[in-house]
Amino acid sequence: MIIDLSGKTALVTGSTQGIGYAIAAGLARSGATVLVNGRTDASVGAAIERLTAEVVDGTFVAAPADVGTESGSRSLTDAHPRVDILVNNLGIFGAQPALEIDDDEWRRYFEINVLAAVRLIRAYLPSMKDAGWGRVLSIASDSAVVVPTEMIHYGMTKTALLSVSRGFAKDAAGSGVTVNSVMAGPTHTGGVETFVRELVGDDLPWDEAQHEFMVKYRPQSLIQRLIEPEEIANMVVYLSSPLASATTGGALRVDGGYVDSILP
């Protein structure tokens, strides 16, 4: 399977680390020019330096902006008014007892995890439709359908992203633009390492801590390990390509079999 994204420009939000970073690298390896996004010039510059070392033929463009805010999103779209591929990867998560999540925290999660994606889709989808080609992808989670008791507010936002993607796919019907969400399972990132430590403690070696986390908090996983970011990126790169032209309005799983369902 040959994936060639030469001539395409991709924006990956929250791409200075973790899953977003892996997606940026994967898209660049396939020939896309990748807009690397983070909140600060420094974080974006450092990420591009690492990416350039890893993907020697890759083309990366700095796109710093806090897209979790309306003004930050506007500054980004003003600087880069058109893209061919939009990957809404930005997201926050954290454990908190359900009855202790106050209104401000509910709003903060919705603003960053959902509205940030909606704003960018609204900004970029019209030009994609006019061009007759485009790809919109939002990184959701298994938590969208298997809501964790320790982070209900996070699960709510990921459920919303599934609806957002399905709805905008209908808006783009017949245009040559596809809109999908990718449901990532428990993934090995720096943030997740911190999260795992919060739940199982700092005393265990990492391999044992990861195993205890999966057994105790994510026992449904069929691969019984954390997913590597590159495994999420592989799905995103495929869905971003012309090869996925008949896949739209979907919620595609890269969850290690975590969701107990025979449907995608």
Rank of each mutant, 00 (worst) to 15 (best):
P229S: 05
V192I: 14
D66H: 05
I48R: 11
A116D: 08
I101Q: 13
P229K: 08
A95C: 08
S141H: 06
G45K: 10
A62L: 11
I152F: 01
D203W: 02
P205Q: 06
K129E: 15
L27W: 01
G257I: 02
L76V: 04
L11C: 07
P81F: 01
I227K: 12
I227L: 09
E198G: 12
V147D: 00
T16W: 02
G176S: 09
R225N: 09
G176A: 02
V177I: 00
R39M: 06
V118W: 06
A209K: 13
L199G: 09
S221D: 02
G7Q: 09
T77P: 13
G26R: 13
L161D: 07
M128C: 03
L263R: 14
L137A: 04
E49K: 14
F213W: 09
G176R: 10
T59G: 09
G134Y: 00
S71L: 07
A46C: 04
A25D: 11
R29T: 02
V83A: 10
H188Q: 14
E228S: 05
A184C: 00
A184D: 14
S240W: 01
D78H: 09
N88G: 08
V36D: 10
I92R: 14
M128N: 09
L162E: 12
K8N: 07
I2C: 10
K129R: 15
F60Q: 11
A123M: 05
E198H: 10
T77A: 06
R107A: 15
Q96D: 08
L35A: 09
H153R: 07
M1Q: 15
M214W: 04
D130A: 13
A184V: 03
Q17Y: 02
E54C: 06
Q17S: 08
D84V: 01
R166A: 07
D103I: 01
F60I: 02
P264D: 15
G191M: 07
L222Q: 15
E150K: 04
G14A: 04
Y124T: 01
G91P: 14
W133V: 05
A246Q: 15
G45D: 11
I92D: 03
G134L: 06
A79I: 00
V147E: 01
A116Y: 03
I112P: 14
A25Q: 14
A22K: 04
D103G: 13
T16F: 02
V146R: 13
E54S: 10
L252W: 04
F168R: 10
V177E: 05
V254T: 01
P205S: 06
A79W: 03
T194E: 08
T187R: 10
A117P: 14
T40R: 14
E111K: 12
D260T: 11
A24K: 08
W133I: 08
T69F: 01
R197L: 08
G250L: 10
I3R: 08
I19N: 07
A123K: 08
V254D: 01
A47W: 04
S141G: 15
T13E: 07
S15E: 02
V145M: 08
R107G: 11
Q210L: 10
Y258M: 14
